[in-house]
């Protein structure tokens, strides 16, 4: 999928996103993943990092929000194609003239946008229940970082979904992929605490660059160059992800049609 396709089908993307959000508001598991789990993690982290001083509260708000974004991407966006399969709507979606990846892009957009609510709730918890004075040091950098993070997460999700569909063996590891990314991407503590050999893995994960830019924009003393570099990495990874996703979707749909297994697990 290229960026031109996204512009051409922007209305479809928005409608899919709207319908997805409406549908998911009734799903207890999704509500838990998007709202409750990040809030519980935020509460835990606020208690645990109390000794670090009030400056860490905004770090926790952003970090716990990122955990919500990742969990939502992994469990909800990861199953976005399978969900259509389970509800019997996959065949019509594949048959319509709109490219199938556009539909999945819209679904991922909905998932990522609704996950941002966890950051807002984390902010409310830290500000009102714990009484922290929360300030975003560089609001413009934060806004750009957030927009690029959303795009990077959606693009990454476009790779995860077809991989899970084509490889049920990989999807079996879905449960085990949640916390390693929390660890490797430095959502709530610096990756410098981890063994050195894990650092290159972190660099290959778009959520890591999202964490670098968002934490950078909210923390005092971060050099702008560091944030700009993280933006560049997110753009680069997003483009690579879109390119790879395009190939994966073609391969998946070809395999499904050739093997006549579209609706089967």
């Amino acid at each position: 999928m290229n960026v031109r396709v996204l512009f051409k089908y922007w209305r479809t993307i928005l409608i899919v996103a709207e319908m997805t959000i409406r549908q998911q508001l009734m799903d207890g598991f999704i509500i838990f993943t998007v709202l409750f789990q990040p809030i519980i993690i935020a509460l835990l982290a606020l208690w645990m990092l109390k000794g670090k001083g009030p400056d860490y509260a905004i770090f926790v708000v952003v970090g716990s929000g990122l955990t919500g974004l990742w969990s939502s991407l992994l469990f909800i966006s990861g199953n976005s194609i399978n969900a259509e399969r389970w509800s019997g709507t996959l065949e019509p979606l594949v048959a319509i003239p709109t490219p199938f990846e556009v539909i999945i892009f819209g679904k991922n957009l909905a998932n990522v946008i609704q996950s941002l609510l966890s950051m807002v709730l984390g902010y409310i918890v830290a500000a009102f229940f714990f009484g922290y004075d929360l300030t975003i040091v560089q609001p413009w950098y934060f806004a750009v970082s957030l927009a690029l993070s959303v795009f990077a997460f959606i693009s990454f999700g476009l790779i995860i979904a077809p991989v899970f569909v084509m490889n049920p063996g990989v999807r079996a590891w879905q449960n085990a992929m949640e916390f390693p990314v929390y660890l490797l991407c430095g959502f709530l503590f610096p990756i410098a605490l981890l063994p050195g050999w894990t650092t290159p893995i972190s660099y290959l994960l778009p959520p890591y660059w999202a964490a670098v830019s968002l934490h950078g924009a909210t923390t005092v003393g971060t050099a702008p160059n560091e944030i700009f570099f993280a933006w560049g990495m997110m753009v680069l990874f997003s483009l690579i992800d879109l390119l790879v996703a395009s190939r994966l979707f073609k391969l998946m749909l070809y395999k499904a049609r050739a093997d006549a297994t579209l609706g089967m697990e």
């Binding site: 645990m48 079996a172 590891w173 449960n175 949640e178 916390f179 503590f189």
Partner: peptide, 25 residues
Amino acid sequence: AQYVASKVFMPLAQMFFFVFLGTFA
């Protein structure tokens, strides 16, 4: 694989996450 992922790796990754967070705190 489903068992190993859900019952061995997930809990261990969770344990490592909170241990690192705790020691950082």
